[in-house]
Simulated assay, not measured.
Amino acid sequence: MASNIGIMDSAYFVGRNEILTWINNRLQLNLSRIEEAASGAVQCQMMDMTYPGVVPMHKVNFDAKTEYDMIQNYKVLQEVFNKLKIAKHLEVNRLVKGRPLDNLEFLQWLKRYCDSVNGGIMNENYNPVERRSKGGKDRHPKGAQKISKSLQSSNLHNPGSGDTVGLNKTSGPKQGRPYAAAGGANSSEVQALSKEITDLKLSVDLLEKERDFYFAKLRDIEILCQTSELEDIPMSVAVKKILYAADAKESPLAEAQEYLYQTLNVGEAEDETEAEAEAETDTGH
Results as ranks from 00 to 15, higher is better:
residue 3 S to F: 14
residue 3 S to G: 15
residue 4 N to H: 09
residue 4 N to A: 07
residue 9 D to H: 09
residue 11 A to G: 13
residue 14 V to L: 10
residue 17 N to S: 15
residue 18 E to F: 01
residue 19 I to K: 00
residue 22 W to T: 01
residue 23 I to F: 04
residue 24 N to C: 10
residue 24 N to I: 12
residue 25 N to S: 11
residue 27 L to V: 03
residue 27 L to H: 04
residue 27 L to P: 03
residue 28 Q to H: 13
residue 30 N to A: 13
residue 31 L to T: 04
residue 33 R to A: 03
residue 34 I to M: 11
residue 34 I to T: 12
residue 36 E to Q: 09
residue 38 A to T: 08
residue 43 Q to D: 00
residue 44 C to G: 02
residue 45 Q to H: 14
residue 47 M to R: 07
residue 60 V to I: 06
residue 60 V to E: 00
residue 63 D to L: 14
residue 65 K to I: 15
residue 65 K to D: 12
residue 70 M to A: 05
residue 78 Q to P: 04
residue 79 E to D: 15
residue 87 A to L: 14
residue 88 K to E: 15
residue 89 H to Y: 04
residue 93 N to W: 10
residue 99 R to A: 10
residue 101 L to Q: 12
residue 102 D to M: 06
residue 106 F to K: 06
residue 106 F to W: 04
residue 107 L to R: 01
residue 110 L to W: 00
residue 116 S to C: 01
residue 116 S to L: 03
residue 118 N to H: 12
residue 119 G to Y: 01
residue 120 G to V: 09
residue 123 N to W: 00
residue 126 Y to N: 07
residue 130 E to L: 08
residue 131 R to L: 06
residue 136 G to L: 02
residue 138 D to I: 12
residue 139 R to S: 14
residue 142 K to E: 15
residue 143 G to C: 06
residue 144 A to I: 15
residue 146 K to L: 11
residue 150 S to L: 07
residue 150 S to W: 03
residue 151 L to E: 07
residue 153 S to V: 11
residue 155 N to H: 09
residue 155 N to T: 13
residue 158 N to S: 07
residue 159 P to H: 02
residue 159 P to R: 03
residue 161 S to P: 00
residue 165 V to F: 09
residue 166 G to M: 08
residue 168 N to A: 15
residue 168 N to C: 12
residue 169 K to L: 08
residue 174 K to Q: 08
residue 174 K to P: 00
residue 174 K to W: 05
residue 176 G to R: 06
residue 179 Y to S: 09
residue 179 Y to R: 12
residue 180 A to F: 14
residue 187 S to R: 02
residue 187 S to Q: 02
residue 192 A to Q: 12
residue 194 S to Q: 09
residue 194 S to V: 10
residue 196 E to T: 04
residue 200 L to K: 02
residue 201 K to T: 02
residue 205 D to H: 12
residue 206 L to W: 06
residue 208 E to H: 05
residue 208 E to D: 13
residue 209 K to M: 09
residue 210 E to A: 14
residue 212 D to C: 00
residue 215 F to P: 04
residue 216 A to R: 03
residue 223 I to F: 13
residue 228 S to A: 15
residue 229 E to F: 13
residue 230 L to E: 00
residue 230 L to T: 07
residue 233 I to C: 04
residue 233 I to K: 08
residue 236 S to C: 11
residue 240 K to R: 15
residue 242 I to R: 04
residue 244 Y to K: 13
residue 244 Y to L: 08
residue 248 A to H: 08
residue 252 P to H: 01
residue 253 L to F: 14
residue 254 A to P: 00
residue 255 E to F: 02
residue 261 Y to R: 15
residue 266 V to A: 13
residue 268 E to T: 11
residue 269 A to N: 08
residue 270 E to N: 13
residue 271 D to Y: 09
residue 273 T to C: 05
residue 278 E to F: 05
residue 279 A to R: 13
residue 281 T to W: 03
residue 281 T to K: 03
residue 281 T to R: 11
residue 283 T to V: 04
residue 284 G to Q: 02
